Amino acid sequence: MLYTDEFLEKLRMEGDPIPDRIIEELFENSQVGAVNDLLKKLMHNNQKYPEELPDHIECWLEDTANCPEGVDWERIRKATDLFKEHGIAITFLLSTCSLVYCYAARKGVKVLTFSYRLGQNAYRRIAETGQFVLHVMAPGGLESGGQGIKAIQKVRLMHSAIRHMVRMTGRWDEKENGLPICQEDLLGTLLTFSGVIIKGLRHLGMKVTEKQAEDYLYFWKIVGIMLGVREDIIPKTMKESNQLEEMIKKRHHGPSPEGIQMTRALLEFHAGLIPGQMFDNMIPALIRETVGDQIADWMEVPHSNWQKLMKYKELTGFLLDSDYTGLFGSMVNRLGLALIKRQSLAMTDYEYTPFLIPTELRKVWGIEVKGR
């Protein structure tokens, strides 16, 4: 796939036509309540879709309830195996470097400031992102009836609803920014779940083979298609993924008040994740190590003494870690485990929804959940 400025600019005016049209009709017909009820129930496999749903959305849910035809299930399983091995670190990287990478996109991040749900509550943002990945990447998550399928449907509908509501405010500069949550921004976000994560794991000293990396990228290509990203624009190889990442960085990354605000909230959320002074300011250092100093400077990520030690991460990892995941890979695992063990809660307006860790992943990662 050859990515050019002209091609990517055209993608800024493209959304997700079918669910966008459905959401628009629901708003016009004052049926938003039915959608809200649906979104609350989508994550429960044992619950049927509400009977009062309009026919067109019920048909859409049925049409999108399976993976695309011809999916390579062996590659899907290989990707979930990698997640079982490194899932704690991946979950943590998604809640740190991947989010900062997204916040550095000056146009895309503006959407977050239009929505309290996405923009002002870092706690819920992190919890919901982590929950989405756990459902999708758990063994069997993408199989028929799997929780990953419903998680994808929910996110896709939310994207269309937010796209519609932001445009209806009359305060969104479409000529300057393109459509809210446009195809280019969806594509860039998809990279933060796939190629950016692979690079992050390797940067921290964790072993990921070329085959594992390509299978992981393939997994997220399938998820991207199901999330409404055009199949023809999704990178097919790590080489293409890296090329696209560089293009998007050149086109959109830079300082912005919105990006700095979001990053500050993220750092405040993570402060004190592990008690004691030893790990103070480690997370800003890890973010700098994975996203690079330029993005970190734009987002005003503070410097810390941990950065000096990270320059010698290969040597210290070799001396201190017998399995050579790397010293900092081990630290990320510890921080990620602390994050997951919080039994994070995805905040809603009036209630708390438990952060659910699939049973098989809890067993693999050695996480006990009270009352189970």
Rank of each mutant, 00 (worst) to 15 (best):
Y3V: 12
L26E: 07
Q131V: 13
L217Q: 14
S98L: 04
K110L: 05
H56T: 13
V291S: 00
F114R: 14
L204Q: 08
R77F: 00
C97K: 13
C182R: 09
A161E: 11
K40H: 12
V196P: 01
D81L: 13
R75V: 03
F355M: 11
K207Q: 10
K10E: 12
G145H: 07
K107L: 05
I340Q: 04
R125C: 03
Y350R: 11
L320Y: 06
K10N: 10
T169D: 05
I357E: 00
G326K: 11
I222L: 01
F355A: 06
A122W: 00
L112C: 08
V208R: 09
I340M: 05
V364C: 03
R124G: 13
L339Y: 07
T263F: 03
R230C: 05
M282K: 04
A89F: 01
I149M: 07
V133N: 03
K370S: 13
S194E: 09
F132G: 02
C102F: 06
T263K: 05
S241Y: 09
R124I: 07
M299H: 03
L38G: 08
Q131R: 07
H135P: 04
Q147R: 15
N242G: 10
I23H: 08
E9D: 14
Y49Q: 04
L345Y: 12
T64V: 10
G33Q: 10
I152K: 05
G87R: 07
N242C: 09
S115I: 12
R156N: 03
V208A: 06
M262C: 09
R342C: 01
C97Y: 06
H44G: 01
S322K: 15
T316W: 11
V208E: 00
G130I: 15
F219G: 09
I295T: 15
Q307T: 08
P354D: 08
V71L: 03
T96K: 05
E143L: 14
L2W: 11
A122N: 05
I181N: 03
F219K: 09
H252P: 02
G148W: 09
I274H: 01
D173W: 02
D297Y: 09
A34D: 15
G130A: 10
G141N: 11
M13G: 08
E24F: 08
M165S: 14
L8E: 01
A265V: 01
F92V: 13
T237F: 02
D37T: 15
H44S: 12
G317V: 08
V229C: 10
G33W: 05
T209M: 08
I367F: 04
M137P: 12
L217W: 04
I234N: 03
M310T: 03
E14L: 11
W60K: 07
A338Y: 07
T325D: 12
Y103H: 12
L315V: 15
L38T: 14
S304M: 11
G178Q: 12
R125W: 00
L339M: 13
R230V: 01
E9N: 14
S144D: 07
H86K: 15
G326F: 03
A127V: 15
I90D: 01
S98V: 06
E240M: 13
G292R: 01
E25N: 15
D63V: 11
T80M: 04
H44C: 08
K199Y: 00
E25H: 14
Q243S: 11
S144L: 12
V35W: 04
G259W: 02
